[in-house]
Amino acid sequence: MNALHTAAMPDQPRARTAWHTATIVEKLAETPHAVRLTLAAPTWPGSEPGTHLDVRLTAPDGYQASRSYSVASSTPAGNVVLAIDELPDGEVSPFLVQDARPGDQLEIHGPLGSYFTWLPGRSDRPVQLIAGGSGVVPLYAIALAHDAAGDPAHLQLLYSVRTPAEVFFADELAALTGPTFGLDLVYTREAPHDWPDPIGRLTRETLAARTIPASQRPHIYVCGSTGFVETITPWLVDLGHSATDVLTERFGGL
């Protein structure tokens, strides 16, 4: 092996970012406030798990608004799945959640970002994913890709969510659990009947108890609101994780 190429897997050329026209082929209720959109985008090159894209809407008067959404799919080129939470004061999400219909066309720009990504075969260290609310979307894409590749590294997802009805990809995440993927849910407002754990915000104690310990040197991905990410990240460093092992992505109605 060439000394300059020490990664376990040969590097693939990264898909170039471009604008694509996408057609909504399916729209499903994901949670009471969110939809799952499946898009057909014939020129979409596929994307690495963890990446996002921009959706641009153009009003009849020419006014344009664009917002970033994580890609929820680990799917072949030409196909994109998004899960979009409605922000009541948003410019783009109310249209996508309330008004968009199968057959509608959207402009999408991507794939975007090579920082908050995970690729199979890159490392044999375990991976801890930590999601707050709809921040689970890129982490779900990582879990899907991990499963599809049969990657042997252990993956663990700690998912903080308000209520059972607001769990994104609930059935899919449950189906992914197994020897190399573990799922821990923390409910902050309401839990299923007989839920054994306390209901409330994720605490430092729960974080310590439900995540892979620093001694195993996990790669850590944290995605959620700015407040969530900035609460969790210092705790991880206090628990002994190296700050360089903690990758973060904040969202919030940009």
């Binding site: 990264r14 970012t17 996002h52 894209l53 921009d54 664009s66 970033s68 720009h109 991507g110 975007l112 970002g113 090579s114 920082y115 908050f116 700015t226 990410v229 973060t248 992505e249 904040r250 969202f251 919030g252 940009l254």
Partner: peptide, 24 residues
Amino acid sequence: PRHLDGNALAGVLSEVFTADVTAA
């Protein structure tokens, strides 16, 4: 004021740079 992080620059900077700059 609220802030996000540099991941949010990926789209606009891809109009300028050929490579993704957010991982730089």
